[in-house]
Structure formats: structure tokens, C-alpha cells
């Protein structure tokens, strides 16, 4: 059995591939949803974003915009922390076991 076959038959490899795929695409979809949601809100309901909060001049649009920026960072952070904790460990084991 070649080392390639050994990797592919290792259940940990299937686990790694599936976990990474589902996390990566889920987070991508969330990011796309947040950003396109923001753009569509700007295009179709700018008045909502321009509504002042309380008695001040700061509008709802300010925290919403900040939320999009911060969400990009937080989503990336979620991916990296999951990957550091689980994917790297699985990868190490798969590489070890393929030898």
C-alpha cells in the first residue's frame, strides 16, 4: 500500500477534509451573507442606516458598518482557532500514520 492510499484510507483524513470543508464554506457563506446583506441594505434601505440612535447624530449605520469590519476579523479568528486546535492535530497524526 502506498503512502497515498494509507492517507486516503485513514478515517482521520476523511474527518479532516470534511471538517475543514464544512467550516471553510460555512464561514465563507456567512461572510458573503453579511457583506451582501450590508450592500443590499445600503442600496434598498439607506434611510434605515441613516436613522439616528437616541437623541444624537450617530446613526444605526455606524455600528452596522463597524459590525461588518469586526465580523471579518472575528470569523477569520474562529477559523484560525479551530484550525489550530483540531486540524493541525489531525494533520500531524495523518502524516505520522502514513509513514
Amino acid at each position: 500500500m502506498t503512502s497515498l492510499e494509507r492517507v486516503e484510507r485513514n478515517p482521520k483524513y476523511a474527518e479532516l477534509v470534511n471538517a475543514r470543508k464544512s467550516l471553510g464554506w460555512t464561514l465563507s457563506a456567512i461572510m458573503l451573507f453579511i457583506y451582501m446583506g450590508f450592500i443590499l441594505l445600503v442600496a434598498y434601505d439607506p434611510k434605515f442606516l441613516g436613522t439616528p440612535m437616541g437623541n444624537g447624530v450617530t446613526t444605526i449605520g455606524i455600528p452596522v458598518g463597524l459590525f461588518v469590519i469586526v465580523s471579518a476579523f472575528v470569523l477569520t479568528g474562529i477559523y484560525v482557532s479551530r484550525a489550530n486546535a483540531r486540524f493541525d492535530q489531525l494533520t500531524r497524526q495523518i502524516v505520522e500514520e502514513s509513514k
Binding site: 475543514r20 464554506w25 464561514l27 453579511i34 457583506y35 442606516l49 455606524i62 471579518a72
Partner: peptide, 24 residues
């Protein structure tokens, strides 16, 4: 004013996609 924020957001949101799908 606010339009600048809308614009800058567009330049940021590609990065998470790079992380999730491309980097590794």
C-alpha cells in the same frame, strides 16, 4: 462621510475568504 465606510468595507471582506478557502 458614511459612503467612505461602505467603500472601505468592500476592501476588507475578501480576506476571510482567502483564509477559509485559499491560504492553506
Amino acid at each position: 462621510g458614511y459612503d467612505g465606510l461602505i467603500y472601505s468595507v468592500g476592501w476588507l471582506v475578501g480576506w476571510p475568504i482567502v483564509t477559509f478557502l485559499i491560504a492553506e
